[in-house]
Amino acid sequence: MDNKKYPIGQFKYPKDLTHDLLSDWITTIATFPKNLNMEVQNLTDKQLDSSYRKNGWTLRQIVHHCADSHMNAFCRMKLALTENEPTIKPYFEDRWAQLKDYELPLDASLAILEGLHTRWEILLKSISNSDLSRKFVHPEGNRRISIVEAIGMYAWHCEHHLAHIMLSKKIGYE
């Protein structure tokens, strides 16, 4: 089950962050909408409404979740760039995935991701080295997360959910 839940493993922040790794993370974020669209464009509604694992989200829910999650991440980074260690608002992603808009066709969320990631790439490439260390506070555990760590987490998040979709296409749908 762990291999299906975390097909690329869990995110681990590297001990030694290099400029090349940061650049790779930004590229992953920038190219995510195109890569996601390529993976889902020919799927049927039956495939989109199936899961990559028992009791997991459907592929449709994953795409809509990515739009919601990445909008939140983008706003959190902008808050960290413009305020002094702002406390962010967490949300219950599992409850969001049960709302009616998660049943819609993928077009709206794919369009959101395309526009959002275009802006996100420009923002990330414009951040100074000193701004990479700016932080926001996640109220669960009062955890301070730097922008550079958040970039890594969301590059991982892109690859994590792409892997779920690719896994479904490889092994079948539940």
Rank of each mutant, 00 (worst) to 15 (best):
K12S: 10
R60Q: 03
V40E: 06
V148W: 06
L106C: 07
L22P: 00
I122L: 13
M71A: 09
K135N: 14
N72I: 13
K135V: 15
E174P: 12
A80M: 01
T58K: 06
M71Y: 09
A67T: 04
C158E: 11
S146V: 02
N55F: 11
P105E: 14
T28W: 02
A108R: 04
K89Y: 02
H161V: 04
W156L: 06
L132V: 10
R143Y: 04
R119P: 00
A163Y: 07
G9N: 06
D45A: 10
Y13K: 13
L123S: 07
Q41R: 13
Y13C: 10
H64W: 10
G141E: 01
I62R: 02
L81R: 03
N55I: 03
L132K: 11
N72M: 10
R53W: 06
M166V: 13
C75A: 13
W25H: 05
K100M: 08
A80R: 00
R60T: 05
T27V: 15
W57I: 07
Q10G: 09
L110V: 13
D131C: 11
K4V: 05
N142S: 13
M71V: 13
K100C: 03
K5P: 00
H117Y: 12
V63D: 01
F92T: 11
N37S: 14
S50N: 08
R134E: 03
I151C: 09
K125P: 00
L48S: 05
T87H: 01
L17Y: 02
D20I: 07
K100I: 14
E159Y: 01
L81P: 07
M71W: 02
K125Y: 03
F136V: 03
G9Y: 05
I26C: 05
K169P: 02
F32R: 02
Q10D: 08
L104P: 00
S69W: 00
L104F: 14
N37I: 05
I122R: 12
I112F: 08
D68I: 06
G115S: 13
I165Y: 08
G152C: 01
A163P: 05
G141N: 11
L123I: 10
D107W: 07
I171P: 00
C75H: 06
D24Q: 12
L48A: 02
R144M: 11
R60M: 06
T28A: 14
C75Q: 11
M38H: 11
I112Q: 06
L124W: 01
K170H: 12
K135T: 15
D107T: 15
L17Q: 04
L116D: 04
N37K: 14
I112E: 08
G172R: 09
S23A: 15
S23L: 10
K170I: 03
N42Y: 14
L79N: 02
A97D: 07
